[in-house]
Design a protein around this nucleic acid. Sequence first.
DNA 1: CGCCCTGTTGGGGA
DNA 2: ATCCCCAACAGGGC
Length: 276
Amino acid sequence: MPELPEVETVRRRLAPFLEGRTIAMAEVDDARLVRPEDPAAVAARLGGARIVGLGRRGKYLLVHLDDTSTLAVHLRMTGNLLVGADTVPAHRRAVLHLDDGSRVDYTDLRRFGTWQLLEGAPELAEFLDARLGAEPLDPDFDAGTLRRAFAGRRAPVKALLLDQRLVAGVGNIYADEALHAARIHPETPAGAVTRPALARLATAVRDVLEIGIAAQGATLRDYRTPEGGYGSMQERFQVFDRTGEPCPHCGAAIVKTRVAGRGTHLCPRCQRRPRA
DNA sequence: CGCCCTGTTGGGGA
DNA sequence: ATCCCCAACAGGGC
């Protein structure tokens, strides 16, 4: 489910239903969800709280409460938040009952997702700052941001792009897409990426994330239209999950390799491996 | 039918 | 600094 565009889509979809509402009761059925804290204690804390707003930082969805605490929700691989379901959805791990009688269901097939309750703005800031670097959609995100983050580093540029402490919110799909758009081989040592390439990459990261948001997260692998199709051509990726298909830019066959422990898709003609 | 491999993320240990 | 493994489960390929 996640990747930044999907989290942002969930935030925008839920906000009208949640903002201003009071949580009448919360149920947390999965002990791991809020570890290391006690699920019952967190549920009790949520009960009676009013939701003043929904935010996002990186891939964290932030549920701001009127007692200055914030519930930081991370959906990891398969988490999702649903409103208005008329039956209990599969793999439900937690529920928020709102004061208007509606329900928010949290589902998570693989149970990697987390709910972290943070007390007050300083604790929230400390939590986020320890984990997240630059926001790629902020106006000041540019080539200089990447140059400072990559300086002197020899790890593959894709590995650093995926490091949330450097750039917040880039996942495996959008890393492949951004590197392809910027014509950078994913195994290029990060510190060796040229200045012009860094400028292309900064633009590409922002562009692919904004395209994903504009498509309302409809870019995921398992997304299908109600008729079972893929939707418009623009909703498909350029390289991700397109092994063997022609590169939209040059026509060469997309190849799949492994970089930073993750499946990696690239065009061998557009993204030349730099020689040492 | 069963086995093996893969995976949209992040944390911890080597 | 970098790399590997793991969490828990489903789905696809063979």
